[in-house]
Design a protein around this nucleic acid. Structure first.
Lengths: 209, 209
DNA sequence: TGATTTTGGCTGACCAGTCAGTCAGTGTAA
DNA sequence: TTACACTGACTGACTGGTCAGCCAAAATCA
């Protein structure tokens, strides 16, 4: 808005597309796919209904674009956390878990996760995308770290290494649970995750050395 | 159908009501609330559309009734598992977890759980019911068992006792995940849960002394 | 027969997606 | 630089179709 220079058509088109996606995310999260109205999306984006259809083939395409736009950058940032580093496997997993928690606690992001869970039956293609692009790589890297941890004898139970889900489940439940169990989810998730890590890796000897 | 005696009108009305609820559950699970058509529910129940409205004020009431009818008996059975018993806390929690897993793995039940998660934003009242009647009591009893376990020194980390969520999270993720991560969820959940319990309580010495 | 339950066609509202028309912005010529 | 023609992005009224809930009539029961 502040810069007035090259408001070239192309630039404006991109801006509008982004505005539409942002608006769509809000409306879909609030109403779900079926009950969301394209007119509302358009209004919220400050655009006419027809304009929405210039960028997106139909409601479903808009839905997919909105979910992907929200989740891809998050997945990328979380994945970056899992790059091989110097510290212990526990440190790596801890960093990953807290980053993921922060990312998914971002209200919009958490909402979209719940949206995807809710609509997953009706959007198998989107679900596949989500598994392939978001969960899959994270899960894989996490599995590798667990194997490393098992090799180092860091784990309470070596069996744990076979089930990356055991690492991410409480974090995911905190995120998903924000919807289903509001005040129940009011417990501070950080000590919860720390207790979880302590169970997996044995009590931490943080400050104490 | 088999008994023909007192097919009194009242009885028939009850039967119909149940048939409608069963049909509604299927349709809601398959389509979600908004996209589910009352006509489909009626057809599946072998009843005319108007008949649905004899028992239920509107679509929303039918939705709530369907979810409650599905979840209340399940919650009751799971709760029964958590009654105080003789064995160790670990044994009690293990029994509870596996019962809950079996119950929630029942296709219909798992589907309804995912349905509730998905529609939770749009049905705060239903969400409250779910938390109050289904999750709440289970969580409470589970918390009591954890405290007992902590007192007995059964836990790897006493801190765990403060977060019942840590006990149920992997089991819940397996259930919810069946939708979002089909083949990923193909891992056999029972050894997974056993590994989880081993992490919380320390390796089991099952057969061994 | 009269009372009650069930039916399914109907209505009104709603909404995804379309398209003919508009006009801001661009290119071009003078 | 200015004037003018052109283009295609944008608009929003409109269409076709859907569906929740209603209710007059048919079916069923006592």
């Amino acid at each position: 808005m502040t810069e007035r220079k090259k408001s070239s058509r192309a630039d404006k088109a991109v801006e509008r597309r982004q505005a539409v996606i942002a608006a769509a995310t809000e409306v879909f999260v609030a109403k779900g796919f079926a009950a969301a109205r394209i007119e509302d999306v358009a209004a919220r984006a400050g655009v006419a209904k027809g304009t929405v259809y210039l960028s997106f083939a139909d409601k479903e395409a808009l839905f997919e674009a909105a979910v992907k736009a929200q989740m891809l950058p998050v997945a990328e940032r979380v994945r970056a956390t899992l790059e091989p580093g110097p510290g212990s496997a526990r440190q790596a997993i801890e960093a990953f878990l807290f980053t993921a928690l922060d990312e998914l606690s971002e209200p919009r992001t958490g909402d979209v996760v719940r949206l995807v869970v809710g609509e997953s039956i009706r959007f198998p293609e989107l679900t596949r995308f989500y598994r392939r692009e978001v969960i899959g790589p994270i899960q894989q890297r996490c599995a590798a770290l667990l194997i490393q941890a098992a090799a180092n004898g860091e784990l309470t139970t070596p069996e744990t290494a076979r089930y990356p889900l055991l690492v991410i489940a409480p974090m995911m439940m905190v995120v998903i649970g924000r919807g289903v169990m509001q005040e129940m989810g009011l417990v501070d998730p950080r000590p919860l995750l720390r207790a979880h890590l302590d169970a997996l890796f044995g009590p931490s000897r943080d400050g104490a050395a």
